[in-house]
């Protein structure tokens, strides 16, 4: 039995007063082993967030079942830490307060001193000790996302669900945080499901990449195992033939599958119209 199992999971939303059902995910099957790092790659709007919400227990599937260690997932729990795309920090709490709230909830029987130590330990892990008393509005996007990571990890969850955690960040911050997530993962060895729209990010971090075909009725594509040795170095990867091959395979797959679903392909050559901007002046109005 796998650590996490999704069996024939389907989910659709009822939209509007007409009650029209809009299928989002259909027939999703996934098995994740303990300690594995899985990346699910897909275009925006393909139902990635729905998928992670289902695993987190924020949503329940219409059909099928989600099993964590054989137990069905019905509601959110402290065994699954979630990092949201838009940080979702509580703006009225400091960095310490945000992490501490989660620690207090995850370890209610601990002494205040222990909770305090745990909070500081994980703020230190994401290198935010100098900003411990700051409020989210005083932090940059990257720092906010670190707080969110610290908050999720400090609860000591069995698995970590990352919902496009880095897609709102600039490229440099993104690269730094990718490296840090890898280091933290090496240290903590949690089971991780990373949702991303960045194939390179997936290759850098994951053991397996699974494409999510575009919705509606999104399904999971064939998995791509990443056997590149760890720790993976960004610079070295760029010259690695295997890296290039797997990257091309995945991108090709994604482009193909999008063409199939959306029913359109970009023509080879786009002819741009030969236009000159006109400036409306009083003269041209008269003429």
């Amino acid at each position: 039995m796998a650590f996490l199992e999704l069996n024939n999971v389907s989910k659709s939303y009822v939209s509007g007063p007409g009650g029209k059902r809009l299928p989002v995910l259909e027939n999703i099957n996934l098995k994740v082993e303990e300690g594995e790092f899985i990346a699910i790659v897909g275009f925006s709007g393909s139902g990635k967030t729905t998928l992670i919400s289902l695993i987190a227990g924020l949503l329940n599937p219409d059909e099928g079942e989600i099993l964590l260690r054989g137990q069905p997932v019905l509601s959110p729990g402290p065994d699954r830490g979630v990092v949201f795309q838009n940080y979702s920090l509580l703006p009225w709490l400091s960095v310490y307060g945000n992490v501490r709230l989660a620690v207090g909830k995850a370890f209610p029987s601990w002494l205040p001193r222990q909770k305090d130590r745990q909070t500081h330990k994980f703020i230190d892990l994401v290198k935010l000790t100098p900003a411990v008393a700051k409020y989210p509005r005083e932090l940059s996007g990257g720092m906010r996302q670190r707080v969110a990571v610290a908050r999720a990890l400090a609860m000591n969850p069995q698995m970590l669900l990352l919902d496009e955690p880095l897609s709102a960040l600039d490229a440099l911050t993104r690269a730094t945080l990718q490296d840090e997530i890898e280091k933290i993962w090496e240290k903590e060895r949690k089971t991780v499901i990373l949702i991303t729209n960045d194939v390179d990010e997936g290759i850098l971090l994951a053991d397996r990449i699974i494409p999510l075909n575009p919705g509606p009725s999104a399904t999971l594509g064939p998995e791509f195992p990443i056997t590149l040795p760890r720790p993976r170095n960004r610079q070295q990867l760029n010259h690695d033939a295997r890296y290039k091959m797997i990257r091309n395979q995945i991108i090709e797959y994604l482009m193909d599958v999008r063409g199939d679903v959306a029913g359109f392909r970009v023509p080879e050559d786009l002819v741009l119209p030969d236009l000159e901007p006109r400036y409306v002046s009083s003269d041209s109005l008269k003429g």
Binding site: R80, V82, S88, L101, K105
Partner: peptide
């Protein structure tokens, strides 16, 4: 809604 989700994920 995100803040509500945080509350639910933390199981408050």
């Amino acid at each position: 809604k995100d803040i509500i989700n945080v509350s639910r994920v933390l199981n408050l």
